[in-house]
Design a protein around this nucleic acid. Structure first.
Lengths: 199, 199
DNA sequence: CACAAAATTGAACAATCTGTTCATTTTGTT
DNA sequence: AACAAAATGAACAGATTGTTCAATTTTGTG
């Protein structure tokens, strides 16, 4: 009797699952409602009892994805001990993000590919840009030292991070979240050392 | 009498221009061939004399965009003097890229937005990832020092760079290419200094 | 189980868009 | 002017969309 009880999740889940299955093979724009109904073995009309159109279907999947990701990140973050250095905290955040991504990698792989919907990478970046911003702005020394506009710094660092994630999911998770965290740190260290050397 | 002479570029250009104009207001998936013909004030059948379908139209615009970008970059790079340090060369490359982007910013703004086509940011990143790779691999010390897989490093650094570009074009070029180059260097410097400080 | 509510079905529908065809007209070049 | 290339208008079948509605099936609850 929960307030959040949803009637009829079963068919809705069936439709969403079938849709994702087709999305692995065809682009979003080429998929018809008929395709989805056929895959789910339901009447085409039934689709419209649950979703306005295929865009609504994708929106709802995307919303749930972001929600699940956020919840998982918050959950992991609640276990943080905040006695570390700034760098250690950044490392902890990175590990958290990689871990959360891993759970959603099949969906992310599709949504980030050309089978997905235009602009997804922007919405994805925006969604987790907030997580990073909150984390960074806790640090007074950071805010004081940063000379460039925050929006540009955030675009830079979150895009870089997403670049790693995209490569990772495209490689079908060829590394563990822990290995990815180390890889991330190694790259940062590499950049830090690089400017002391000459050609 | 050039080999590359194209018959009938006028109508083709008209169609492409009209299409881009509509793309500023509507998403690619919602635009019909009828919309394009109406905007260009041509017969719908004429569209099919020049393009297979609207996907072909977008493909051709995208190809030309990448071609133009590449040519412009190569042109600017041919003026390099290679007597600089590795860092100076990286700075020069960054300046070149920002300058090339500026010329194509109206189109890039649309193609990177949710009005464009899924996966554009991947193709875009891939296209200029090559430019960066070639530049990096010239440097022996770089190759020797890099511990992480090249593909991951490239994803990281090119995504970061594209993040800046996306923010820049979304801001309607609120800075000059020179300012963007400085901003880029500032961010790298910031990251380099950051790990020496505590919370 | 029985029964009512909820969900699904099948079929039909007008509307829109697609891609193609073809006869005709316009345009550009020699 | 004459010829070829390009564009037009109209028509066409085929797909897909989103909606409706009566009939049927499934589900949940007493």
């Amino acid at each position: 009797m929960s307030i959040y009880r949803e009637k009829n999740r079963k068919t809705k889940d069936l439709i969403q699952g079938s849709f994702i299955k087709i999305l692995e093979k065809k682009t979003f724009e080429s998929i018809t409602v008929g395709d989805i109904a056929k895959q789910a073995q339901i009447n085409r009309g039934t689709f419209y009892l649950h979703f306005i159109d295929k865009f609504d279907l994708l929106d709802q999947i995307e919303q749930r994805l972001f929600g699940d990701l956020g919840n998982h990140i918050d959950e992991l973050q609640s276990n943080y001990s905040s006695t570390h250095t700034f760098e250690k905290e950044q490392e902890q955040l990175a590990a958290t993000l990689f871990s959360a991504i891993k759970m959603q990698s099949p969906l992310l792989k599709i949504f980030l590919s050309d089978h997905g919907r235009a602009g997804f990478h922007l919405r994805f970046r925006e969604a987790f840009s907030e997580k990073v911003r909150v984390n960074l702005e806790k640090n007074e020394s950071f805010k004081a030292t940063l000379k460039v506009p925050m929006e540009y710094f955030l675009s830079f660092i979150t895009s870089a991070f997403l670049g790693l994630i995209e490569q990772w999911v495209q490689n079908d998770l060829d590394k563990t979240p822990q290995e990815m965290t180390i890889l991330y740190i190694d790259i940062i260290s590499f950049i830090q050392k690089k400017n002391t050397k000459k050609v």
